[in-house]
Design a binder for these strands. Structure first.
Lengths: 240, 240
DNA sequence: CAGCGTAATATGTATAAGCATATTGTCCAG
DNA sequence: CTGGACAATATGCTTATACATATTACGCTG
């Protein structure tokens, strides 16, 4: 019985049913307010949510127009190995392979916006599920942006978990692809002879400073990523 | 100089700077209203946006609490082959391989919620970039939910493009994974001897009725998916 | 008829005020 | 000391009102 939500859902219904087709200008706030027996403010709030959901577009004097939903956006939750492994009921195992402070390769250097010669920290580690290799994490961390990284040996805590606690970030980008494994990866991940790896590349920034570039290598035979719909109306979508 | 936006950004700053750490309960609406020299309603609107952005959580009597941003959500735009190919400056080519009305395999039948024996339409087709195979599309369409599909031969218009025009959907789910190609796929896509395929599986529903299940097979050597950050504050984020 | 200025209009922002409702904390009874 | 009733409190919802602002439409002028 929450009015703005009832109104929002009623309008949503008219849009998805096709009664109000894309391109159409829907009635104005005052008309809707009269129809639903409420004030303009309440209608405005319902419409604001439809805007946030990407269903309509509003312009002063121009009115509210239904958008043709491209509908191609989806949300992915970037999986964290440890959580995935534990959620599946397996024992999580962590092993640090190498840590070193070094001159990062060119692409990483550019991503961090560092001058040549500036140092960064490289960490490689292995995540296991019930002892079986599940993921190789290969990561560069910008020592200029995260000085504390120099004092970390990552022997017991994985770079991933350390970073989320120690360094807030403001932007992240990911790339998903499949690759031929290197011999080293094939051995570490115990891959089938012809098996490829599913790579998740993760880059994060704090403001404009690059923080980390990670390559997460997963056995392609036992890895996948799933999406869900973009949440249309925030946390509590009501009955809609 | 829009107050609710200025307030929202001010609060955002305190959160991302760490001044208000995750778990902390921030001042109440009345206090903030006094601080910013406005009414409770204006503060409430700013806070509502922070909730939508997933930065804070609000509970009656409990106050407003800063959330530790897991920050693992990202948005993917499911690529449409034709657009990708044309955007890359290549000539797009389309070729229908097969169409038939048939009893769908068990997993598809379940996804559509169909009784055994109910019919569905299967379409396979090939998308090319400058003549070179770029994607094989293998799709089942629920004939019960989309009767018009029976009259389509998909000779010139791809099932994808026909569907977006003909059938609005309300839900979609995707899965990304890498697979060994079948011999048929290897031939169709002109794959390297050891090359795998990157599979995008797409399922859509209208309300509770399954509409289509599509498998989009891409040469793994030349395919990837990228994400972007979830838009924090809708279309017009202001200065934030 | 082209171009410009102005009025009409729909949304955008904000205030003030009241009641609703979930939740927490407290205090009393057993 | 436990459990339940109750009051205090912060958010949640709605109304009524006023002014701001972008944009469109119209009509006047040259």
């Amino acid at each position: 019985m929450i009015k703005h939500r009832a109104i929002r859902d009623a309008l949503l219904g008219r849009i998805v049913s096709g009664e109000w087709a894309p391109g159409r200008v829907i009635p104005g706030e005052v008309d809707l307010a009269r129809e639903f027996g409420c004030t303009r403010a309440t209608v405005a709030r319902a419409l604001r949510e439809l805007v946030a959901a990407g269903l309509v577009e509003r312009r002063r004097r121009g009115g509210t127009r239904v958008l043709g939903r491209s509908g191609r956006d989806a949300v992915v939750t970037i999986p964290i190995v440890r959580e995935e492994i534990e959620a599946a009921g397996h024992a999580y195992g962590y092993e640090r392979l190498t840590v070193r402070e070094a001159d990062p390769p060119e692409p990483i250097r550019q991503a961090f916006g560092l001058r040549p010669g500036a140092a960064a920290v490289h960490v490689a580690c292995l995540h296991r599920a019930d002892g079986r290799p599940a993921q190789v994490e290969d990561r560069w961390i910008n020592a200029a942006a995260v000085p504390a990284v120099r004092t970390q040996d990552f022997r017991t805590v994985s770079p991933n978990e350390w970073l989320v606690r120690a360094v807030p970030y403001t932007r992240a980008r990911h790339e998903f692809r499949a690759e031929r494994p290197t011999d080293r990866l094939r051995g570490l991940l115990d891959l089938a002879p012809d098996e490829w790896v599913f790579v998740v590349e993760r880059r994060t920034w704090r403001e404009d400073a690059g923080i980390t570039v990670a390559h997460l290598y997963n056995p392609a035979d036992r890895f996948r990523i799933t999406t869900r719909d973009p949440v249309a109306f925030g946390v509590d979508p009501g009955a809609g």
